[in-house]
Design a protein around this nucleic acid. Sequence first.
DNA 1: TCAATTGTTCGTAAGTAATCGAACTATTAA
DNA 2: TTAATAGTTCGATTACTTACGAACAATTGA
Lengths: 116, 116
Amino acid sequence: MKLLHHPDRKDLQLASVLYALSDPIRLYVVSEIRKHGEQACNSFKVPIAKSTMSHHARTLREAGVVYTRAQGTQRIMSLRTDDLNERFPGLLDSVLQAYDSSEQPELFTEQEEGLE
Amino acid sequence: MKLLHHPDRKDLQLASVLYALSDPIRLYVVSEIRKHGEQACNSFKVPIAKSTMSHHARTLREAGVVYTRAQGTQRIMSLRTDDLNERFPGLLDSVLQAYDSSEQPELFTEQEEGLE
DNA sequence: TCAATTGTTCGTAAGTAATCGAACTATTAA
DNA sequence: TTAATAGTTCGATTACTTACGAACAATTGA
């Protein structure tokens, strides 16, 4: 498969990173990776089509928020914690701290409950 | 004039704040307010029409990043530091620290130099 | 080889965002 | 009252974003 492009650490742009993190689904994805470690795209229980998830994964990757590697047919995403902390100290922590304390983590995962 | 709407502290949304901060002009405006204190909209040397600045000011205000009050014909913007720190501890600091250390503060202010 | 799994890419549609200039409002100063 | 100043709002344009399903590609397993 074609190589996935990842920006160099020095090329990370603050505005792009903030933009990538300004979407509820992407925030959720990043928070889940932070909590449970690297994840394949299909591990997130979000109510969107796989092509849409692919788009979000690409947005996060191209902003430099996640590193994506191929493993079999899966794409495993991990947080570029070191790069982000080096370039934007404290940013990732404060965003995820804010997310986990103010959003409902079950926003997507438990939305199927009680529907039948 | 009609009252400007400002969201309550409790209603601040992380994704909205991150989005408001994900634009180069808005980042610059916020950074300038942080460095020099409250500012009127016309104090920013940015290469955009005043209607566009009005739009950015509104985006920042509606996300809860700035508080805007009328003073004569001016709109004075100040950072909602306390509200932001209460809801999203460390976020504003890390964003502005990252901005000031990685962007060129003269991005807009000095772009006219050497053009004649 | 064939089918299933996982994800990407493409085409499309709907919605949103950034930008401008023109017209407007409100305030201040002459 | 008139003019200048500071912003807002409106309409239009252009561009981007999110979203979907269909088609495709790559890998794995039967």
